[in-house]
Amino acid sequence: MTELLDALSQYGFLRHALIGGLLASLGCGVIGSYVVVKRIGFLAGGIAHSVLGGMGAALYFGFDPTIAAFATAIVAALIIGMVTLHSREREDTLIAALWAAGMATGIIFISLTPGYNTELMSYLFGNILMVSQRELWLMAAMDLLILLLIGVFYKQFLAVSFDEEFATLRGVPVTLFYLLLLVLVAVTVVLLIQVVGLILVIALLTLPAAIAGHYMRTLAGMMVVGALLGMAFSTGGLLLAWQPDLPPGPIIILLAAATYLVSLLLYKLRS
């Protein structure tokens, strides 16, 4: 522990990793709760994997991959949202297609980009130790955007997630809030990709909120506890991975998954 505290004071990248984990946890608790109650984990997975296409293209053409990740995620979310609303196509088929097509595009760009691309690998599997100060500011700005929108429109988001038909009858623009929610899911996915990579992102988006759901009576309660659990997992994962020099992303996920299993067992026993 003392060794880790020394390392924290000594290495800036470790401090960045810690702050990055805490910032990502805010989005993970707040938006993760909607993903869990609306049962759109698969949709979030589709958005996450389609992001590889945008990031691969950005690296090939020399754009900023983080900005490209946000743009791709938002476009993917809007495509899924619009098609779900206006077409009779099955939502899961469409998500699977977008998921695979995004990955395929990314793989093609990786093969076209000369050399072994460590940055792209860190997006796939996550590398919280490589988070830069600029990315931290970007993450903080996105957190602020999420908290602001959810704070101002909490009752509309709650009504639309709870009972879409009744919200429509009360004059809530349901389509607008559904698409806005998907955009916020997209933003959160990119926040979490910084920490655990796009392959593992669904776990961090759903597990803390799902654990919170075992104990909380309200959506707001789920958000607060989900965010705190996300913070505990990202910090705990970082601590556990430091000494044996393991990658923090997978340790964070295993910690979250193990806690979820124990919590699920306790929840089932209790009810």
Binding site: K155, R170, G171, G213
Partner: peptide, 15 residues
């Protein structure tokens, strides 16, 4: 869905 009776009834006030 994690919602209390009071919160569910309050959604009627939207609009």
């Amino acid at each position: 869905f994690p919602i209390t009776v009071e919160q569910a009834v309050l959604t009627a006030r939207l609009g």
